[in-house]
Design a protein around this nucleic acid. Structure first.
Length: 464
DNA sequence: TCGTTCACG
DNA sequence: ACGTACGTGAACGAT
């Protein structure tokens, strides 16, 4: 699958390790001596265990919410069809566009086009929200239809005899992130009116708690180090709120005088940077003129010369070498970056900027998971007895022991890009939470502190 | 099977 | 003049 066995000899791998260590040292980062390849090999058994464990679902709760939202959905459909003057398939973008732009003659000039016509995406419909009473119910219908068809209806049918839901994790992504499928448990709603209600249906087993731990701004911390950006490094070392700091920079305001509105805008700028966002994209995101957006970005790069330099050097690297790589050596080839097709070339430029950041963050999370699994499996925090003591009885993780709820040990259940969810006996929850936090924060010694926030609760919503 | 839309980080 | 922020997976309609 890779290269011939003869070429990928052990010496060759040592060379890779040497190269990675040297690169990390130049960035002021001390990495564990391990390559991406080995990280992926080591995470596999951990993922298989998590899949097998599954997470308990409060099926009745989902079904109750389904009944409530399905009823609302019917009313919304009626309302939309009444305003349209006839019944039609509200779920069909084609028919929706016909109703809105041909029958009701709503203005379509400012809206994005798709291959098949005018876009009816929520972000586009919001632009004409004030033009007709039909838009708000359409937006609400969209939201509810999504929740019902993707989560509320399917999930209850997928639980096992213990009401547990088992996903499958995959490793084959272009940046090194994990995927989750059948069902995807990495896109369970959290925002909106009903997001928290759906998350609250992911519950701890009796006598147990869920512990959720997520990295705080891991991607921006990675940027600070990969870019060796002095201003960003200082902000993180001083434990400042990075978005407030950016706001004070781009709006030229004292830290204490940054408004919530300014902080929100700065947050968009910070994330946009990691994606290679253009002034146009930022203007869309913030609802401001392109000129203003360009000004913010320019001002940002005046202060963050390291980030500017990082962007340029990743694009150069991809052009010269044909690929970019993460801290632990996951490569992504970008063959079209020199293409005369500007669309393709610019898309790969953004990948060159984003991949090392997103991929390095993913590797850090995987390292933390591997280490945490080791600690949860072998350490005395499993019910406070030594592994030797426990080895003389039924394994605490065996189905027999779990069935009787006998000395269950803490175990990882889920992971969502910068988050780990663990289930632990209620009595051990505080102790386990500390171990998780400590493991995540020390998985790698970046040039800035790494922080993780931990919460404990009876369900996934309450654990955040 | 593809395109559109939208849920998450 | 053009299109415009990265990475995923799932549901639905159109073909």
């Amino acid at each position: 699958m890779t290269r011939g066995n003869i070429l990928s000899s052990r010496d060759d791998k040592n060379d890779i390790m040497k190269h990675l260590i040297e690169k990390a040292e130049k960035l002021g980062i001390k990495i564990p001596h391990i390559t991406a390849e080995k990280i992926n090999a080591a995470i596999k058994p951990v993922l298989r265990k998590m899949e097998k464990a599954g997470i308990r679902i409060d099926v009745a709760k989902l079904e109750k919410l389904d009944r409530k939202l399905s009823k609302k959905l019917i009313e919304l459909k009626k309302k939309i069809e009444k305003l349209a003057g006839h019944s039609f398939n509200v779920d069909s973008p084609t028919q929706m566009a016909e109703v809105l732009f041909n029958e009701l003659k709503l203005p379509k000039a400012d809206l994005k086009k798709t291959k098949s016509g005018i876009s009816t995406a929520a972000s586009e419909l919001k632009k004409i929200e004030k033009k007709h009473k039909i838009i708000p119910p359409i937006l609400e219908h969209r939201e509810l239809a999504k929740l019902i068809s993707t989560y509320l209806k399917p999930l209850p049918t997928l639980v096992d005899e213990d009401s547990r839901l088992h996903t499958t994790y995959g490793l084959e992504t272009s940046t090194g992130r994990l995927t989750s499928s059948e069902p995807n448990l990495q896109n369970i709603p959290i925002r909106g009116t009903y997001g928290p209600e759906i998350r609250a249906a992911f519950v701890a087993s009796p006598g147990m708690k869920l512990i959720s731990a997520d990295y705080s701004q891991i991607e921006l911390r990675v940027v600070a180090c990969l870019a060796k950006d002095g201003a960003m490094i200082k902000a993180f070392q001083n434990n400042e709120d990075i978005h407030t700091r950016t706001a004070s920079e781009i709006f030229d305001t004292e830290l204490s005088k940054v408004t919530p509105e300014q902080r929100r805008a700065a947050k968009t700028v910070n994330f946009g940077i990691v994606y290679g966002q253009t002034p146009y994209g930022l203007s869309q995101g913030l609802g401001i003129p392109v000129e203003k957006a360009a000004e913010y970005i320019m001002h940002y790069f005046e202060i963050h010369k390291g980030v500017k330099n990082y962007i340029n050097s990743m694009i150069k690297m991809a052009r010269d070498e044909g690929y970019v790589e993460t801290l632990f050596g996951t490569k992504r080839y970008l063959p079209e970056i020199g293409s005369s097709n500007r669309y393709l070339a610019e898309a790969e430029e953004r990948m060159a900027i984003n991949t090392p950041v997103q991929g390095t963050a993913a590797e850090i999370l995987k390292l933390a998971m591997i280490e945490l699994d080791r600690k949860l499996t072998r350490s005395v925090i499993s019910s406070g007895r030594s592994p030797v003591e426990r080895s003389h009885e039924i394994s605490p993780t065996s189905p027999e022991a779990r069935g009787r709820n006998d000395n269950p040990s803490p175990r990882m259940l889920l992971t969502v890009h910068d988050e780990i969810v663990v289930e632990a006996p209620a009595k051990l929850a505080n102790e386990v939470a500390k171990v998780i936090k400590e493991t995540m924060e020390n998985a790698v010694a970046l040039c800035v502190p790494v922080r993780a926030d931990v919460g404990i609760g009876d369900n996934w919503a309450a654990a955040k």
